[in-house]
Design a protein around this nucleic acid. Structure first.
Lengths: 133, 133
DNA sequence: CTGCATCCGACAAGATACTG
DNA sequence: CAGTATCTTGTCGGATGCAG
């Protein structure tokens, strides 16, 4: 109970009725998906992820990685060399997820413009003073 | 600039490099998906949603609905009757999304156990004192 | 019935600094 | 190189009350 909960994962979470939310909660972290994508090409090192993701902090990288590992989505392999070398790799399950996410991407791509326009239209109706200063 | 931002939507959002995140951000709201699901069967009224979703507050229902409307995912139809009657319905684009989300659900269903076990195992390794009080 | 405004708590995530 | 610990902040979401 005195767990400080350092971040990211909803540990206690109320039982989800809906399985969709269950997935989303797991992937909804700000960085989870990007890590999944970055690691999709094959084993990748901590620092490579850090530099590859642009904007992520060490903390969030570690945290998110831990959660993915916890859920069995990535494996962590420590090579006991002189300069520590740790590699992360997607598990088969995560690869499936990655493919599914791909579908979402496709949807996003297809409808990006539609949505952007919908937003613009909606926002435009409410702030009808773009005339000038 | 003096927008108070009442909640939910990341208005200003930093340009997302990754389209996946774009979708997720749009759907990652705590209630977005459930509303999408609830409305998938056809036009549905505000109160019906409120009672059907269990646990959602009026505030969040309204806000999430607004966002979905803004993104062109739901349509809002006001029937000018004596007791106001408003119906929400998914747009075709949202229906596509709904189908895609279905894939995610399937993935979740298939691997629910796997993940649960992975978690249990991971957590178990770190708290090896379940002996007794 | 449908919806907005305000206040407030919880938690994810950023910044920074320190270690094996 | 690969983390961990602490502090702070931003934002989501809950509670409540008012209104067309």
């Amino acid at each position: 109970m005195s767990q400080r909960n350092t971040g990211v994962t909803p540990q206690v979470v109320n039982a989800h009725a809906c399985p969709v939310r269950e997935v989303l909660d797991r992937v909804s972290g700000k960085w989870s998906v990007q890590i999944l994508v970055a690691a999709a090409h094959g084993p990748i090192r901590f620092t490579e992820l850090e530099r590859g993701i642009e904007g992520i902090s060490r903390r969030m990288l570690t945290l998110t990685l831990r959660n993915l590992e916890r859920d069995g989505l990535v494996t962590r392999t420590v090579h006991p060399t002189v300069p520590p070398r740790v590699e992360y790799e997607l598990t088969p399950v995560a690869r499936e997820l990655h493919e599914t996410l791909q579908r979402l991407t496709d949807w996003a791509e297809r409808n990006r413009v539609y949505i952007a326009e919908a937003r613009a239209a909606y926002d435009g109706e409410r702030e009808p003073e773009p005339a000038d200063a």
